[in-house]
Write a protein that binds this DNA or RNA. Sequence first.
DNA 1: GCCGATTTGTCCGTATGTATC
DNA 2: CGATACATACGGACAAATCGG
Lengths: 244, 244
Amino acid sequence: MPKAIFQTIYQDLKIKIEEQQYPFQQLLPSENALVEHYHCSRNTIRRAISMLAEEGYVQSMHGIGVRVIYQPVRQTSFTIGGIESFQESACRNGLTASTRVVQFTELVSDEHIAEKTGFPIGSELYYIQRVRYLNGKALIFDINMFLKACVPGLTPEIAAHSIYDYIENTLGMTIVTSKRIMTVERITQADEKYLDLNDFNCMAVVSGHTYNADGLMFEYTQSRHRPDFFCFQDTATRKQGYPK
Amino acid sequence: MPKAIFQTIYQDLKIKIEEQQYPFQQLLPSENALVEHYHCSRNTIRRAISMLAEEGYVQSMHGIGVRVIYQPVRQTSFTIGGIESFQESACRNGLTASTRVVQFTELVSDEHIAEKTGFPIGSELYYIQRVRYLNGKALIFDINMFLKACVPGLTPEIAAHSIYDYIENTLGMTIVTSKRIMTVERITQADEKYLDLNDFNCMAVVSGHTYNADGLMFEYTQSRHRPDFFCFQDTATRKQGYPK
DNA sequence: GCCGATTTGTCCGTATGTATC
DNA sequence: CGATACATACGGACAAATCGG
């Protein structure tokens, strides 16, 4: 699949910023200069730049130029960013990962589950519990619920490998939007049973609702991390249009 | 200040979605229909829609339409979203807020501080510690460092009210980008001293670097929350351009 | 303080491609 | 196949902010 022009430019600029060909605090070449360089329209350049701005790589300044504000981050623990699978995260963090499936059942959503997950009452679901190992230590406890109708043929073997890989590459379904909530919760019996804990009495918990390309919420996930191996990154930009 | 057209349309659509004039799972009117309704170009409509998509309000589907995936969230604890001040957050969460300044000093960045905050060694800084009360309970401990050159004339009185208000409305400086990292850390002596704690032995910690309109990092913040009153929201969209 | 050059911000109209039905 | 709807891209116009002379 040939990539779109704005994607190519975006990734090219991104790499140049990460390699510090455009160093921290410097200005990018002007939009018109980039138009000449990439032989495209100004809108296309602006689209690539706005993507970089959203990720906290650059910041546009009216009448001045576009300043690089990217600085490499030292990764000390398991860092979470955009939508990615456990395998992808582990790889990006330079860790060896493995997974053990401790429960794999089917159930039907009742009132209690519907309240918690957002699945309509009566939905048929896969219910999966998995322990995630990083460099040999049991650090993360994952609870997943999938709409059975959306992820047919799921097996414990697939769950042990990568469900996202199965969804995207075997089923051909596209994952688009994920709404997540980060909280800190008390340790549960399951945490104690399955994880290598220390003396923390709480866990970092990421709960998420995932939507596919049809706009259907097909997954609810709760990911429970040991606190000292958890890090969640975010870049926010101040919205325009707050008229005083 | 007159708002831009795309801002007006964005907010109009946003309100209609929140009021469920465009209900969950329904399609928005087609882009061409919206063009007629708002009397503007398709580009402008698309810009407004893409902003809504970033916030997890809608999801575009090629050849089909734009589906509403917004659902109101029940706010159970102190929820953090985009860039906003403590006052703004408290107001949005429907809580009465107050602040006590427990330390207000000046210091010069040394190697240790520079490593932790990213301020260059030798920078003159304001160092502020504040306790945040929500509905009368001491729940959040904030540590701020500001570049003195960027925020001249800061006083404990201002710190007790709203530093962001001072920065934006008195100094006229614009806050643009904020890079944040969420972790869970052990309780410190300061936490025990100043906060109403329960038996948790850890805190939810949000560390952030804030950039102004000149692309200058002028603030480092560490905000320590009691775990049971903390909630961090995020919406992620799967990036295009992962060619297999 | 003014003017002009540069740079980013907003908006439009149009054309073409691709996916769905 | 055609109609509809979103996706990408171009080129142009004007506004607004900045900076140097």
